[in-house]
């Protein structure tokens, strides 16, 4: 039996979908079987971020309405063994699905997949409640800024009340340079405020934009620092003890090294 993990944040635009796509792919790359589920009904995006948009035939709505079998609604990612996507319906809205229905889909997926990652919509309303309904665990994605952290705290409270445990943190778009200059909250500040376990830190990385443009999750190449960070998180999720490295601000020499190694 696999486990269901909801990837959520409260605030939009902090990297839930990017994180779901990359963690799902990364887990498959290390040999796990994975189903990623888009729970953002009406505003689906996990399919385009993963580059699978042209292959969606059925959605979770079709499964709920018994128009098709669950297994048939899953789109296989041909680039890696063991990775499937269940898309959300774009024509419906969040109130067309009941939390119990999402829960049932997630539970059925755990029979065949080690990990079921549910990409939650932003907000605390029905869409989030549907996404969290079947989750045993949660990954909170936040960036180190006040609005994202405040919203993350709200979501953590709701998940704790729903007895989702553990709730782990992915700190996204982290910039050691900004921390050094005193203009970004440090890892310890964020953990002090949110008071949950840190699962990993994703450095701010331009490679994320190019990867989304192409529809190829970053982790297919390990050249970017963000991809390496996602790979480490996937290993931690699969139970390996991988320390979280401290990210350091650029100095003169590392700046030069980066300039030379950058793809032009």
């Amino acid at each position: 039996m696999g486990k269901v993990i909801v990837v959520t944040s409260g605030k939009g635009g902090v990297g839930k979908t990017t994180s779901t796509a990359n963690l799902g792919t990364a887990l498959a790359l290390i040999g796990k079987t994975v189903a990623v589920v888009d729970a953002d009904v009406g505003l689906r995006n996990l399919d385009v971020v993963m580059g699978l948009e042209s292959r969606i035939i059925y959605t979770s709505m079709d499964v709920i309405e018994k128009q098709c079998e669950l297994q048939k609604a899953l789109v296989r990612d041909r680039r890696v063994e063991g990775l499937m996507l269940l898309a959300a319906s774009q024509k419906n809205d969040k109130d067309d699905i009941q939390p119990e229905q999402m829960k049932s889909i997630c539970q059925r997926l755990t029979v065949n997949y080690d990990f079921v990652l549910v990409d939650s919509p932003a907000g605390i309303e029905r869409g989030f409640q549907n996404a969290a309904a079947g989750a045993e665990e949660a990954i909170i994605v936040t960036t180190p800024d006040v609005s994202a952290i405040r919203d993350a705290d709200r979501i953590i409270g709701l998940l704790q009340n729903a007895r989702v445990e553990p709730i782990n943190l992915v700190l996204n778009r982290f910039s050691p340079d900004l921390v050094k200059s005193g203009n970004m909250l440090d890892k310890s500040d964020v953990l002090d405020i949110l008071n949950i376990e840190l699962l990993g830190i994703i450095p701010e990385d331009e490679a994320v934009i190019a990867s989304t443009n192409r529809g190829i999750p970053l982790v297919h190449s390990t050249s970017s620092s963000a991809a390496q960070a996602y790979m480490r998180i996937a290993r931690r999720l699969s139970g390996q003890q991988i320390p979280i490295p401290d990210l350091h601000a650029k100095n003169f020499f590392s700046g030069i090294m980066e300039w030379f190694s950058r793809k032009r």
Binding site: D145, V146, I149, R150, D153, R154, G157, V179, G182, N183, M184, L185, D186, D189, D192, I193
Partner: peptide, 17 residues
């Protein structure tokens, strides 16, 4: 530092939330 101010402000709003 703006990060120090951010932390103080966050602690207060989160307490209220």
């Amino acid at each position: 530092k703006s990060s120090t101010i951010a932390k103080q402000r966050l602690k207060l709003v989160i307490t209220q939330d």
